[in-house]
Amino acid sequence: MADDDRRFVEAFLAGDEDAFRQVFRRHSPRLYALALRLTGGRAADAEDVVQECWVRAARRLAGFEWRSQLSTWLTAILINCAREQRRRSPPPTDADVATAWAPAHPRAQAIDLDRAIAALPDGYREVLVLHDVEGYTHAEIATQLGVSAGTSKSQLFHARRAVRARLSSVSAPTEVGHDAG
């Protein structure tokens, strides 16, 4: 995928609109899912975040040196866009989450989990989404968010606790629970 990304980006930089559309289609479903989570499920905000992410990325693509995956680079841009968007928007509601995620979730537990994630404070939510959903390491998260790895671990600890507390207060034992492990 990385080779194809580079080929499409180079074509885009040479003026090929279709190449840009290819890059957009390859990465936007993941970026949009991430934007939905980082904005707490506010679909309109997530759309704005993805759009702004691409506008900024296009502006900087010529300087991208391919030392990291394009997806990682785009994620960093998107995180910043989401932070700016959150400062302008009211806190998300459960209804935002349900509306945004209902068509995409395969089972009820997952949407409950996304509700719990949306209810987290912004700092907790960023780390938990990047670590437990996106699969980034603490070192990578530290780089992405401009914090220390220790802060990332601490935020994750508190985020998981908060998610468990929220789920245990609203759901049956089949949800994410407190069993040992």
């Binding site: 936007s28 479903p29 993941r30 949009y32 899912a33 939905l36 759309e47 993805v50 995620w101 995409a104 979730h105 395969p106 089972r107 537990q109 997952a110 989990l113 996304d114 437990d132 959903v133 996106e134 949800e175 994410v176 629970g177 407190h178 069993d179 040992a180 492990g181």
Partner: peptide, 17 residues
Amino acid sequence: TPRERDTFAALPREVSV
């Protein structure tokens, strides 16, 4: 926990734009 990992794994990583 393993159950929690399963639930996280079930979250959609991609959503149609």
